[in-house]
Design a protein around this nucleic acid. Structure first.
Lengths: 198, 198, 198, 198
DNA sequence: AACTAATCGAGACGGTACGTCCCGTCTTAGA
DNA sequence: TCTAAGACGGGACGTACCGTCTCGATTAGTT
């Protein structure tokens, strides 16, 4: 998402500023929401000129998207358990926790903005959603290999069914995002996908 | 979402203008998306002064929300079938068709805007989502009464699981919203909720 | 300045309303100035519908102009004295008093508005200024007849010289409009126009 | 009348834009009159964003006032003649010429607007009128020193008497502003103020 | 140590949409 | 038929934020 490369001469880019900008964007948007925050506010909090932001990212959406990828992404490691299916359940709990954290608002904001910004939509899909879905798919595949799930499952569809309701509640707010929800999602999923009993 | 009630004297509201404004809003937003449309454009298309819009609704979001409720709402009748569970499946197909229609963009727009506008969020939830969920819940209850579903189901949760994935795909676009998706949602739902076999 | 004549049938026009409207316009504009007052305010104070105003006058300027003519005009009678030249001096004092009264602001307002409203400008000139100038000219003529002034005076010019400085101060505010000013105007005028001494 | 001073950092004011804005305001208002011109029109003609105007001046009146001071002011040099009293007469002719030029409308517009805008009134008085009056007063004083005028004259009053009728005609239009008028004003003024004959 | 060249903080800029205000017209129900 | 009330179309206002542009000061490698 970065724009230019390092030059040969002159004052080198202050790489630390990058992080300060992303942190400022992250803090502000997590707290107030994307729309409520202006680029000037981000620049002010990062103690940086507005141009420094626009030299690195093409627009506000890109900054916030990068903040998510760079600062939040690494914190969202996939939990591992010897039993793949248990690892799946742990991951659902993590997702619940994530959505309930201050980052819930960040995700909502970006998803909202993406509806009117195709570039952001693609970035969010390909750089945030898809990689995490791949983790899920891999675990599900491992569960199939371990004989814990039927082998004729459409894994993409399965992922939609596991995570769709979480996003739905995050965005619409008819019910809150809780571990109890994760439990039911997991149970129903297993009920529909456990291997045929003999 | 309307602002004031009819006064005792004076020229009464031109109810026809109401409809023209809502239709203009609906057409424009369905075609171009919420953010791309300005209040002036809506006013111009409805051949109405901007003040006439602001006299009735507090902001653009409220206009478009009302357009959804007044002009689209009545078109979304719930399908009925003697067998409740079949009626449920028909409703899923209708939802897919709705999301694929031009109104898909409208729903996406409003849901997006609702993320940064708590007033709109509440209106969307309470006036659009909840009434439609109630229809679903009623059908599911009828299915239980007809012995087609287990009686210990949490109906709200069930609704989330049936519709969550549809909204997820609508908003994120990892996969398209299709009847095939509806089929799988239905099947998995039945697998998890059919009455215990003796 | 009135727009239509009395109708033949139906509820007769409430002639009292006319006066109430003019009085409201006069009071408000005298106190706050033309630009600060809206037609709605005049209608509200006169307890009259806005349409009742626009049925009688073509616009706000016409109402206020009429208020001046109808309500203030009759109060501005020309003072008479056996000696014409003394009558002239009295009139200057009256003008000073008038400009210092609440009507000063009214005159300023109308004169201001007239600069961007040719119709009002003409009305103000022909219906307010010119008649009063004619009074002045008549008195000056009488003074000539009485042998108190030179007979070769251009009376229009003389009037400009007597009243111009009063209006100048009223509008620009470099100095206040006082009887002392009137005295000097009178003296200088006499110095320039008294009959040649033998 | 400008709003803030130059900051220590940041892009400095584009002083060229200032002039373009003032020129646009001057041209438009001189041609069409103050009330007929919108801030958007000025911005468009100056090829400038509306905010750039509002960043420098608090409102339209201030822009036009500054246009007068900056662009017209320097053109209104006081004529000089060895004989002070002749210089005075020349100045009266210049004033007539000025009022008959396209700037006559500008002066009328500003004077009109000043009647409902105390801030503008003060600016017009203190920055336009007073400096020019001071020129007149100085010349009159010189004439006294040269023994061409009585020494007991109130110079402010004298100025009002010389210029008041010109403004009166400019604003009311009962007669036109001509050199003939200037001649009479001058003659009468001299008649009333020439030194006593021995 | 002086020079060079690119970056930096700051903030002005053109543009676009917003939501408000008032004018003069139009429309109703009631007198 | 006229009135009070007030909704209406139109158009200007002054504000906010976006993403771009421009300045003088800063900084590090090159000479």
């Amino acid at each position: 998402m970065r724009t230019t490369d390092a030059p040969k001469f002159g004052r080198p880019r202050n790489e630390g500023a990058d992080r300060a900008i992303l942190q400022a964007a992250l803090d502000l948007v997590s707290a107030e929401g994307y729309r409520a925050i202006t680029v000037d506010q981000i620049a002010a909090r990062a103690q940086v000129g507005k141009m420094t932001i626009y030299r690195r990212w093409p627009n506000k959406a890109a900054v916030v998207m990068d903040a998510l990828l760079v600062l939040v992404g690494p914190e969202t490691d996939f939990p591992s358990a010897p039993c793949a299916i248990e690892s799946m359940k742990k991951q659902l709990y993590l997702q619940v926790k994530f959505f309930r954290s201050k980052y819930g608002r960040l995700i909502r904001s970006l998803l909202a903005e993406a509806q009117s910004n195709e570039e952001l939509a693609e970035a969010f899909r390909e750089r945030w959603i898809v990689p995490r879905r791949q983790g899920v798919v891999a675990v599900l595949q491992r569960a199939i290999d371990q004989g814990k799930l039927r082998s004729d499952i459409d894994l993409e569809l399965a992922t939609d069914m596991l995570y769709g309701p979480l996003y739905y509640r995050l965005l619409i707010g008819t019910g809150s995002v809780t571990n109890a929800l994760a439990d039911v999602l997991y149970e129903q999923f297993m009920a529909g996908h456990e291997p045929r009993k003999k």
